[in-house]
Design a protein around this nucleic acid. Structure first.
Lengths: 180, 180
DNA sequence: GTTGAAAATTTTAAGTTTAAAGCATTTACT
DNA sequence: AGTAAATGCTTTAAACTTAAAATTTTCAAC
């Protein structure tokens, strides 16, 4: 009847766990980064799961459709990959599969034959709007424990974070351009 | 010499971009979620890139080693997958590759022959500690635009967010157990 | 008009990731 | 002991992802 050596508390195990046990180890920045990562991963995993269970689709497909949904005239693949922050080749495959499912369609561009423009089909639009509503509800559900004020606050602090990161990346790029 | 129809501002294009143009469209929760995602993706992409450029390795491998680094006695694969928040099968493959590289090693467990325990090799430990230092510097660099107070603040708000999400997931699980 | 660079996309090869099924071992209950 | 469930991991098939090379087309500068 004795306890085993396994974990007996109700603590959740995640990327932050190790740091919790070695509080002196690293900087505050690392803690922040790991927590950011944990939050994102938690939510993403749940969204993935629900998209599969209830709509038999995947997050990347949903993301692509979300980008396309508001673009009446469709979008170029390059624009899609930029907004989705994924590689060009990645988008090519996703588009192929969504075309296969009849949710989006390719259209030839007569002005520039290199470019590939895609847009939603009527069915895609209808399917997506249903998914988007559920998706919105899920997010609300998960963030429901925060007051509106907290959410607003978090949003603007994350805005600063985003600025800081973008600044660091631009900085680094400049350093390389003139190494003197 | 006239401008084309392409983007001429210095705005960055990302997942938040569409919402910025349709401010009435969705709820504040969605904005928050997208910004969270954007921040994480930005940082992750940069870390991935630098890990490849400077250490010729990948983020998943780094993450696995980070979990293992502090565990003197090694860890079970299941524990690894739990902490990394990825599937079991995923860990199997990563471990195989890291063993191949000589950075970690499997050891047989005599008490439970189902279990697979892995630990770092001496070389792995030395390689990782170098990477970890650089990694810490990168994080600091990217978060450097935030004051220490802002970072602390953000960290605790994200703690609330994490609690909210975990609460919602547990809630949902309970609902299913007794649907009445 | 040629030519060379740039742009937009696709292809390729390797790796990551997942869910689901399968296998081996242990545990719990009789 | 004997059996059923649970546990720990691996395998499988499909999808996702990337970086780098290749392809096609456009553009700019002679």
């Amino acid at each position: 009847m004795t306890d085993t050596l396994s974990l007996t508390t109700h603590d959740h195990i995640d990327a932050e766990y190790a740091l919790r046990e070695n509080p002196h180890d690293h900087k505050a920045e690392l803690r922040l980064w790991l927590r950011l990562l944990t939050c994102t991963n938690l939510m993403e995993a749940e969204i993935r799961k629900r998209l599969r269970e209830r709509f038999d689709t995947t997050l990347p497909r949903f993301d692509l459709m979300a980008q396309l949904y508001r673009a009446e005239d469709g979008m170029l693949l390059g624009e899609l990959s930029q907004r989705m922050m994924v590689s060009n080749g990645n988008v090519t495959g996703l588009v192929d599969r969504l075309v296969q499912e009849g949710l989006i369609e390719r259209q030839v561009t007569e002005t520039d034959r290199r470019a590939a423009r895609v847009r939603m089909t009527a069915r895609g639009r209808s399917v997506f709007s249903e998914m988007a509503e559920a998706h919105g509800d899920w997010i609300s559900e998960m963030l429901g424990g925060l007051s509106e004020g907290d959410q607003e606050h978090l949003w603007s602090r994350l805005g600063e974070l985003k600025t800081s990161v973008r600044g660091a990346l631009a900085e680094q790029k400049n350093q390389r351009r003139r190494p003197k």
